[in-house]
């Protein structure tokens, strides 16, 4: 197991390195941040000074080298706009995004699994068909558009939920989050639902497909032949088996949930790192873009590793192989 984790960590480092090359190269190709940073009235002296200060007068390769050296020291540059370390700015906003992503995931799982299992058990039923049709909608409707609809309907027309921003936060167990206050929860619900919709649809589909496959297995029939209650057959025998693919996909796609939150955060003015990156892209604030992308990549590779480890806990057959 240790060897496995070591090997995977090394792989992750290589992925990070390659990504940093791509990201750095990509960011240097689009637009000139100087235009954004300096007022049109500034004279040439002033412009040169800013360019020098930001290190933009050096060749790209040298800039990259500095970036790498600093990255090893845990510094990912300073924001051109805020003048603060990019990493600090992102990490400040990370809890809001994490809270949104985790709550979305919770919604997707809590609603997706029962709905999917039901649709799998009664594939011909009216309700099942409705669920599946809904999941297709969830897949195909653009997130920002659904977000706007949600605001119009639930905030503007019905007035049930606030339309924008993050609510009050409270701190419990050393964790500051808006899920601990009623106001926070009411602010969280709409954006979380918006972000969850896509994931909810895929959880429904996975749960349904898994159910339809597993329910035909001999071990389900054998469990029934033992006289085990039907509710237990579903809760234990079926659910434990369909959780394997669901956990894999949920885990692997958690990164995409964070990445996708940029859209939702923008629509709902959620003060997370997704909103920060969008603003930074508008302002060509290169260090923040680079740092953000690197953090996302890091999250992805870490999740991959965690899922592989988790997988071995869910499926005893994998556990044995891993131990050898």
């Amino acid at each position: 197991m240790t060897a496995f984790i070591l090997r995977r960590s090394l792989q992750s480092l290589i992925v990070l390195f390659v990504m940093s090359l791509l990201v750095f190269g990509g960011v240097n190709m689009v637009g000139d941040p100087v235009d954004m940073l300096i007022s049109p009235e500034a004279d040439q002296m002033e412009i040169d000074r800013v360019i020098r200060d930001l290190g933009l007068d050096r060749p790209v390769t040298e800039q990259y080298w500095y970036f790498l050296v600093n990255a090893f020291k845990g510094e990912l540059g300073r924001s051109f706009i805020f003048g603060e370390p990019a990493l600090k700015l992102i990490i400040q906003r990370m809890p809001a995004t994490m809270e949104l992503a985790l709550f979305s995931l919770l919604l997707a799982v809590v609603f997706g699994i029962p709905l999917g299992v039901y649709a799998g058990l009664k594939p011909e039923g009216k309700l099942s068909r409705t669920i599946m049709a809904g999941s297709i909608l969830g897949f195909s409707m653009p997130t920002f558009w659904v977000g706007i609809l949600l605001i119009m309907f639930f905030s503007v027309n019905l007035g049930w939920f606030p339309s924008t921003g993050r609510g009050e936060t409270a701190t419990y167990f050393g964790m500051t989050s808006s899920i601990f206050t009623a106001d926070g929860l009411s602010h969280l619900f709409l954006p979380a639902f918006n972000l969850a919709l896509f994931k909810l649809s895929s959880v429904i589909r996975l749960a349904r497909a898994g159910t339809r496959e597993v329910i035909l297995q001999d071990y389900i029939k054998f469990a029934r032949a033992k006289g085990v209650q039907e509710s237990r057959v579903i809760r234990v025998h079926l659910l434990k088996n369909i959780m394997i693919p669901i956990v894999t996909v949920i885990g692997l796609e958690f990164g995409s949930l964070i990445a996708f939150s940029t859209v939702t955060e923008t629509v709902f003015a959620w003060p997370g790192m997704g909103k920060l990156i969008i603003d930074s892209i508008y302002n060509l604030d290169r260090p923040i873009i680079v740092a953000y992308l690197m953090i996302i990549v890091l999250i992805f590779v870490t999740l991959n590793l965690v899922v592989d480890i988790l997988y071995s806990f869910l499926d005893p057959r994998v556990r044995i192989k891993g131990a050898k």
Binding site: F222, A225, K226, V228, N241, D315
Partner: peptide, 29 residues
């Protein structure tokens, strides 16, 4: 079922649930 009439299936590779311990599968019966 499983009390007064029991059944044994053809393929022993398929009749036991792969993710549950043998103990669990016996105790539940």
């Amino acid at each position: 079922r499983g009390n007064r009439i029991s059944m044994i299936f053809q393929d022993p590779m398929m009749t036991l649930n792969p993710v549950l311990r043998v103990e669990t599968q016996m105790v539940e019966a």
